[in-house]
């Protein structure tokens, strides 16, 4: 990913040095670690946010999020991502959360400042090599927006090959052609950080808030209470 990032920094003459962490979750810019928040550069979430921000949808009602990942995935890591996606796409912060969990599953009800009531259903059950299965559906009083086709639950790919072996490809970025989708999102989000100190500042604040939501979720799991989150 660093190679792809360096390519963009060089091509667009961005003079900032940016070093991605091995897990791709933070980037060191001018000696400071900044959260990447890769989902903010994921095309489908940019489009969902666009539908909200341009007023093409109505007032928020509910938001349904489901994410099933590989066995062993940390549920709080998944929750952090989904809270980030929720807040980014509806442009509003979490104000309260109720969470309940099993061994490899967690369900939450989250409310945001703009009144959206969101369910987040998490599971870490898939085998190694399986692609995550997720779905994000915003339901308003004047329209629904979703990153999955109506009447489906499974993510689709751009290309399916039925030859001697079955293959599937998801290509979303010609400039970074050849990188995996999650790598492209990380490179793009890091590149956005490198270009703008303002974005770095915003992302630090957003991550600090997500950490508060995670702490509230942990408190809810311990107490079985709906926990308020300071905005």
């Amino acid at each position: 990913m660093q190679k792809g990032l360096n390519y963009l920094l060089d091509k667009y003459s961005v003079g900032t040095e940016a070093i991605l962490s091995p897990d791709g979750k933070t980037v060191k810019i001018n000696g400071e670690n900044v959260p990447v928040l890769a989902w903010e550069s994921e095309r489908r979430f940019i489009e969902l946010r666009g539908l909200v921000m341009t007023g093409r949808l109505g007032n928020m009602c509910t938001y349904r999020i489901g994410h099933t990942a590989k066995k062993g995935t940390c549920l709080f890591e998944l929750l952090a991502r989904e809270i980030g996606i929720l807040e980014f796409t509806v442009n509003s912060k979490t104000t309260e959360i109720f969470a309940i969990a099993g061994n490899n599953t967690m369900n939450c009800i989250v409310e945001t400042e703009n009144g959206c009531v969101c369910t987040i259903e998490l599971g870490a059950t898939l085998e190694e090599g399986e692609k995550d299965i997720d779905k994000h559906e915003i339901i308003t009083d004047s329209g629904v927006a979703c990153d999955r086709v109506v009447d489906t639950q499974m993510p689709q790919q751009s290309i399916y090959v039925y030859g001697k072996k079955q293959e599937a490809y998801m290509d979303t970025d010609a400039e970074l052609y050849g990188y995996k989708e999650c790598e492209i999102n990380t490179i793009r989000a890091t590149f956005a950080n490198a270009k703008s100190p303002e974005i770095c500042k915003e992302k630090c604040a957003k991550w600090a808030h997500i950490e508060k939501v995670l702490a509230a979720a942990k408190a809810s799991l311990d107490t079985l209470e709906n926990i308020k989150v300071e905005v």
């Binding site: 009602c61 309940i100 409310e111 009144g115 009531v117 339901i139 308003t140 009083d141 079985l224």
Partner: peptide
């Protein structure tokens, strides 16, 4: 645990 959301209608 349950929450009511703003009505669509």
């Amino acid at each position: 645990f349950a929450k009511v959301a703003p009505n669509m209608r």
